[in-house]
């Protein structure tokens, strides 16, 4: 096995462990009890880091691992369904946002969070009915903006501290 492969494997393992730990932490601390399904998105710091330092493919893989393992360990089947929909939308939105000129982790993170919550709302629409969810959308979007800013700033700090600029753009 060549060095690059080992390095990638090690990094992915560490990031998966970090994402799981952050996911567990926020599972213990639901910040907005009035808003079901809304969480800080701390695990997204790890996904953002992967997106910048390792690329799109690994960011996507990390999101998938995080959602499935979190689901198996503590979230439950239906929460996993919501998380999966949110995760897919979030990673696609972050990849798209990262292509914008002059964007930093904050903008990428906000775009990811908004699409994450929108994706969850779509799944909730299918499971609970349209009316129940659409009136909840403003609160979901506001939460996404706030948590997106927070995780974006945190990811910026992490990328700076670890000195890993990946493709050399954005930070």
């Amino acid at each position: 096995m060549d060095a690059m492969k080992t390095k990638r494997l090690t990094k992915m393992s560490l990031l998966t462990a970090t994402a799981l730990l952050l996911g567990y932490l926020e599972y213990l601390l639901p910040v907005f009890p009035a808003l079901p399904g809304v969480r800080l998105g701390l695990g997204n710091i790890a996904v953002l880091y992967a997106l910048y330092a390792m690329g799109r493919k690994d960011a996507f893989l990390l999101m998938l691992l995080k959602v499935l393992l979190c689901g198996l360990l503590f979230a439950g089947a239906f929460s996993t369904l919501y998380a999966l929909a949110g995760g897919f939308c979030s990673v696609f939105a972050m990849c798209a946002a990262k292509r914008l000129p002059g964007v930093s982790t904050v903008g990428v993170s906000v775009a990811g969070a908004v699409f994450h919550n929108a994706g969850q709302a779509v799944v909730a629409c299918l499971l609970l009915g349209r009316g129940a969810v659409l009136s909840y959308l403003p609160a979901l979007l506001l939460a996404a903006i706030l948590t997106g800013l927070l995780t974006g700033l945190a990811a910026k700090g992490v990328l700076k501290a670890l000195g890993e600029h990946g493709e050399g753009n954005g930070v």
Binding site: G102, V103, V110, V114, G152
Partner: peptide, 21 residues
Amino acid sequence: LFTQTDMCILCGALLLLAAAL
């Protein structure tokens, strides 16, 4: 901390929020 593009994304998100409201 924030670039101009970040602010544009943020404004877009706030517009979405206003529309949803």
